[in-house]
Design a protein around this nucleic acid. Sequence first.
DNA 1: AGTGAAATGGACAAATA
DNA 2: TATTTGTCCATTTCACT
Lengths: 151, 151
Amino acid sequence: MDAIDQSILRALQSDSSRSIAELAEIVGASTSSCHRRIKSLESAGFIAGYSAVLDPQRLGLKLHAFVEITLESQSRGAMESFEKAVCGFDDILECHLTTGQADYILRLAAHDLEQFDRVHRECLSLLPGVSAMRSSFAIRTIKQWRGYPTG
Amino acid sequence: MDAIDQSILRALQSDSSRSIAELAEIVGASTSSCHRRIKSLESAGFIAGYSAVLDPQRLGLKLHAFVEITLESQSRGAMESFEKAVCGFDDILECHLTTGQADYILRLAAHDLEQFDRVHRECLSLLPGVSAMRSSFAIRTIKQWRGYPTG
DNA sequence: AGTGAAATGGACAAATA
DNA sequence: TATTTGTCCATTTCACT
């Protein structure tokens, strides 16, 4: 994992549709070396896969929400049933067990407040063992980088 | 945007490295139809691009943090200089202006607590106009879906 | 279904360390 | 010496028309 590998990862994170020839020019290596490096980055597990990046605005998903949730009980059973329920809802994009005041942080996307209300009634309020819930809405996104720093 | 388009988007979000022939079989359409649909989804702006998905664990980024930040002043100048500073730091993966108690929600990745401490000192504490900061760490990720529901 | 571009994989010499 | 790289090469897969 040298500087060239890192810049390959950076380039592939921002645009994976480039040909190897283009990529090779960007990172300053030959096409064959570049190809070899990509294959080893894949098999070494640094690259987990490739995906299309959709535009949430264009899909009409104008509302982003963060929901902090505290459970009534931190018993194993309560957490397991909560987590299982969370995984079943497609509108819940992310869920992390966290330190701090809340127990879980969730990230949601919805079309508008009306649909969020429906999600709230049909998903969030059905989650078992919830004692407190605090929602924040994203008014504006300053920065959204789906990737990770490579070093 | 019919059911087939939606399932194309779903399939491309989970794995964009499939060939059009594979994709066509998954969504139940001919390869040529599938190809035409992808092209129009791209030019209509639903597909913003393609990217490699890296494994943060494999990169050694074992620490995910959420930081809620309140500014001393909500004046335009204070917010602009805060936001500009945020965009300059690669360790800050996401930043949203939000409703609720806090003003901003940030998402960070770091190798470990030690590096997070360095990020804290070298990035977060340098952000201008901050009055309060509350960090939560992800102990465990229950669910992480980078994509969006397609309808 | 056909065309052309690009990915894939191999062999070998040069370079690097 | 051993590992990596760059320049050919052949084959084949696949996007695109």
